[in-house]
Measured scan of single mutants.
Amino acid sequence: VVSQCEHCRQEKLLHEKLRFSGVEKSFCSEGCVLLYKQDF
C-alpha cells in the first residue's frame, strides 16, 4: 500500500499507521515515526 508519509510528505510504501489525537497518520519508516513523535 502506497500512502503519503506524515513526516517526510513523500508517497512511499506504508510502514505503519498510528493514531494521534484520534486521527490516523501514515508513516513510511520507523525513523519518520520517531521524528514525528518528537515534533508532536
Score class of each variant (00 low, 15 high):
Gln4Tyr: 15
Phe27Ala: 04
Arg19Asp: 13
Ser29Ile: 08
Ser26Thr: 02
Leu34Ser: 09
Glu11Trp: 14
Cys8Gly: 01
Lys17Val: 07
Val23Arg: 06
Tyr36Met: 03
Glu11His: 15
Leu34Tyr: 04
Val23Glu: 12
Cys8Ser: 03
Val1Leu: 07
Leu34Ala: 14
Leu14Ala: 04
Glu24Met: 05
Glu30Gly: 08
Glu11Lys: 06
Gln4Met: 15
His7Arg: 08
Glu6Trp: 06
Asp39Gly: 12
Ser21Arg: 08
Lys37Gln: 08
Arg9Leu: 08
Tyr36Gly: 06
Glu24Leu: 02
Ser29Tyr: 02
Glu30Leu: 09
Gly31Asn: 13
Leu34Pro: 07
Glu11Gly: 04
Cys5Lys: 02
His15Ala: 06
Lys37Ile: 02
Asp39Pro: 11
Val1Met: 15
Val33His: 08
Val1Asn: 13
Phe20Glu: 12
Leu14Glu: 00
Phe20Leu: 11
Ser29Asn: 02
Cys5Tyr: 00
Lys12Leu: 03
Gln10Met: 12
Glu6Thr: 12
Arg9Gly: 14
Leu35Glu: 13
Leu18Cys: 07
Lys37Ser: 03
Leu18Met: 10
Leu34Val: 07
Phe27Glu: 02
Leu35Trp: 03
Gln10Pro: 04
His15Ile: 12
Ser21Val: 04
Lys17Ile: 13
Cys5Arg: 01
Leu18Gln: 08
Leu13Ala: 05
Gln10Ser: 05
Gln10Arg: 10
Glu16Tyr: 10
Arg19Trp: 13
Arg19Ala: 12
Gln38Pro: 02
Arg19Leu: 12
Gly31Arg: 14
Lys17Ser: 05
Arg9Asn: 06
Ser21Pro: 04
Arg9Ser: 13
Ser3Arg: 07
Ser3Gln: 05
Lys12Thr: 12
Phe20Cys: 03
Lys25Asp: 01
Lys12Asn: 07
Ser29Pro: 04
Ser21Leu: 06
His15Val: 10
Arg19Ser: 14
Asp39Met: 10
Leu34Lys: 15
Gln4Leu: 15
Lys12Gly: 09
Val23Asn: 13
Ser3Asp: 07
Gln4Ser: 14
Tyr36Pro: 09
Val23His: 06
Ser3Lys: 07
Lys17His: 06
Gly22Cys: 03
Glu11Cys: 12
Cys32Thr: 00
Lys17Leu: 10
Leu14Ser: 03
Val33Arg: 11
Leu14Ile: 12
Ser29Gln: 02
His7Val: 11
Tyr36Glu: 08
Gln38Trp: 01
Gln10Asp: 06
Leu35Arg: 14
Phe27Thr: 02
Gln38Glu: 10
Gly31Ser: 14
Ser21Thr: 09
Val33Lys: 13
Glu16Val: 15
Val23Thr: 06
Lys17Cys: 04
Glu11Arg: 07
Glu6Asp: 12
Ser26Cys: 07
Asp39Glu: 10
Glu16Arg: 10
Glu6Ala: 15
Val23Phe: 12
Ser26Trp: 10
Leu14Asp: 02
Cys28Glu: 00
Ser29Met: 02
Ser26Pro: 01
Lys12Tyr: 04
Lys17Pro: 01
Glu6Ile: 09
Glu16Gln: 08
Phe20Met: 11
Gly22Lys: 01
Glu24Val: 05
Phe20Gly: 05
Phe27Gly: 10
Arg9Trp: 05
Ser29Trp: 02
Val33Trp: 07
Phe20Trp: 09
Glu11Ser: 11
Cys8Pro: 12
Ser29Lys: 06
Asp39Gln: 14
Lys25Cys: 05
Val33Ser: 12
His7Gly: 10
Gln10Cys: 10
Val23Ser: 06
Gly31Lys: 13
Phe40Val: 13
Tyr36Trp: 03
Ser21Phe: 03
Phe40Trp: 08
Cys28Ala: 00
Lys25Arg: 08
Lys37Gly: 04
Val23Gly: 10
Leu35Lys: 13
Glu16Cys: 09
Leu35Tyr: 05
Asp39Trp: 05
Gln4Thr: 15
Val23Gln: 03
Leu34Gln: 12
Ser26Val: 07
His7Lys: 11
Lys12Gln: 12
Glu16Met: 07
Arg9Glu: 05
Cys32Glu: 02
Gly31Leu: 08
Lys12Glu: 01
Leu13Arg: 05
Phe20Pro: 11
Gly22Val: 01
Leu34Arg: 14
Gln10Gly: 04
Gln38Cys: 00
Glu24Gly: 04
Lys17Trp: 01
Ser3Leu: 02
Cys32Arg: 01
Leu35Thr: 09
Tyr36Leu: 02
Arg19Met: 13
Ser26Glu: 04
Leu13Pro: 08
Phe40Gly: 10
Asp39Ile: 11
Asp39Ala: 11
Gly31Thr: 14
Glu24Pro: 07
Ser3Cys: 09
Arg19Thr: 15
Leu13Trp: 01
Cys32Asn: 00
His7Pro: 01
Cys28Asp: 00
Glu30Met: 08
Lys25His: 13
Val1Ile: 12
Val1Cys: 09
Ser29Asp: 01
Gln38His: 15
Cys5Asp: 02
Cys5Ser: 00
Leu34Asn: 14
Ser3Gly: 15
Cys8Tyr: 11
His7Leu: 04
Leu35Ala: 15
Tyr36Phe: 15
Gly22Met: 06
Leu35Cys: 14
Tyr36Ala: 10
Gly22Gln: 00
Lys17Phe: 08
Cys8Thr: 00
Leu18His: 14
Lys25Gln: 01
Gln38Ser: 11
Glu6Ser: 14
Asp39Thr: 09
Lys17Glu: 06
Lys17Asp: 11
Gln38Ile: 05
Gln4Lys: 15
Cys8Val: 01
Lys17Ala: 03
Leu13Gln: 06
Cys5Asn: 15
Asp39Ser: 12
Val1Thr: 06
Leu18Phe: 10
Lys25Ser: 00
Gly31Cys: 03
Val33Asp: 03
Glu24Asp: 10
Gln4Pro: 15
Val2Glu: 09
His15Phe: 11
Leu35Ile: 04
Ser29Cys: 11
Tyr36Cys: 06
Gln10Leu: 03
Cys5Ala: 02
Glu6Arg: 01
Val33Pro: 02
Leu34Glu: 15
Val33Glu: 09
Val2Trp: 10
Gly31Pro: 01
Val2Met: 14
Cys32Ser: 00
Arg9Lys: 09
Cys32Asp: 00
Lys12Ser: 05
Ser29Arg: 04
Ser21Asp: 15
Cys28His: 05
Ser21Lys: 08
Gln10Phe: 01
Ser26Leu: 11
Phe40Arg: 14
Ser26Tyr: 14
Ser26Ala: 07
Cys32Lys: 05
Glu30Gln: 12
Val2Arg: 08
Glu11Gln: 10
His15Gly: 08
Leu34Met: 13
Gly31Met: 15
Gln4Phe: 15
Leu18Tyr: 04
Ser29Phe: 14
Arg19Gly: 06
Arg9Ala: 03
Tyr36Asn: 15
Cys28Gly: 00
Ser29Gly: 02
Phe20Lys: 08
Gln4Arg: 15
Lys25Thr: 03
Gln10Glu: 06
Leu18Glu: 11
Ser26Lys: 10
Gly22Thr: 10
Glu24Ile: 05
Glu24Cys: 08
His15Cys: 09
Lys12Arg: 05
Cys28Trp: 00
Ser21Ala: 13
Arg9Tyr: 02
Phe20Ser: 10
Leu18Arg: 11
Lys12Ala: 06
Glu6Pro: 15
His15Trp: 05
Phe27Leu: 00
Lys12His: 01
Val2Gln: 07
Asp39Lys: 15
Leu35Gly: 13
Val23Pro: 07
Cys8Gln: 00
Glu30Asp: 10
Arg19Lys: 14
